[in-house]
Amino acid sequence: MNDTLSLLIGLAMGLNLLALGTSRLPVLIRAVAAQGVLLGLLPLVLEAHALDWRLILITLATVAGKGLLIPYMLIRAMRAAGIARELEPFIGYIPSLLLGAGGTIAAVALIRYLPLLPEHAGTLHVPGAMALILTGFILLIGRTKAISQVCGYLILENGIYLAGLLLIRSTPILVEFGILLDVTVGIFVIGIIVDRIQRAFDSLDTRKLTALHE
């Protein structure tokens, strides 16, 4: 079980680096979607010995939400805005890649010093969550296009979700749904805003939004 778990989380961490290193928005969106699907499958692996309807529901909802619905909306927003590339990021691709890799390594190294429960200590679970959150922040800070920032936000949320899985037995399912709903609404709002920004400014460059600071 631990092997499958580590493999899934490791793949998710690899997708982090893909998200940091690519300049194409479709690739970024698909990476985020694939990450969502991978993480969505996790509850099944974690609790494979005691499957029940609750777990299956969570899994289905997450996979459908993160893997299909949100990416679909993002791709639509992207097509509507007519952009496919992030051209001038604040933090370049190589530096953000190296930052992400450094953060991932630091997260893996740090776990030795964290007071973890024995069943979490030997896996990539906690470092994975930390790496995802970090990657989310790097994307949010380092990219200028609204869609990339949304993706950063999603990766951040994935990280929080992964951390939340540590408590899978004690988290009320409603909380998890609450988070998911939150995100979906957030994406809706952003999709609408992206559309509006595009119409108003002819660009999706968030740097131009500083003109609105008053």
Partner: peptide
Amino acid sequence: PLLLTIGFLFCLFPLILTWMGDL
């Protein structure tokens, strides 16, 4: 350089994995 950096990272992660052993 980006692709080469990716190549470097692909070599770096196994290094970290081997170094940490079974954590």
